[in-house]
């Protein structure tokens, strides 16, 4: 079982976490439908290092993790406000 370091709770078994998808900017409310469709449906699924949303389930705490999706190595984790300024 992998370990993930939660910015609030410290290192925990990965079973305490839920995946929340890639971090990506939300389109403007009035953006064209195509832009929204890309946001909602299109996932690049590229190998390499991604920023992802993760949830620590027991505390309902959302944070951001940097993960190499090729090797499944978790590189670093951040409070959301450290990334989304």
């Amino acid at each position: 079982m992998k370990i993930m370091n939660c910015p609030l709770n410290g290192p925990r078994n990965i079973s305490e976490f839920a995946y929340g998808g890639e971090v990506k900017p939300t389109p403007d409310a009035q953006a064209p439908t195509q832009e929204w469709a890309d946001y909602v449906y299109y996932h690049a699924n590229q190998p390499g290092i991604l920023r992802e949303w993760w949830l620590h389930v027991p505390t309902s705490y959302w944070f951001i993790a940097e993960r190499d999706v090729t090797t499944d190595r978790i590189i670093a984790t951040f409070k959301p406000e450290e990334v989304l300024r």
Binding site: A18, L55, S60, Y61, W62, F63
Partner: peptide, 13 residues
């Protein structure tokens, strides 16, 4: 619903 609310507010603040 709760998770979605928390997630959105982590972004919207």
């Amino acid at each position: 619903v709760f998770r979605l609310m928390q997630w959105h507010n982590a972004q919207w603040r």
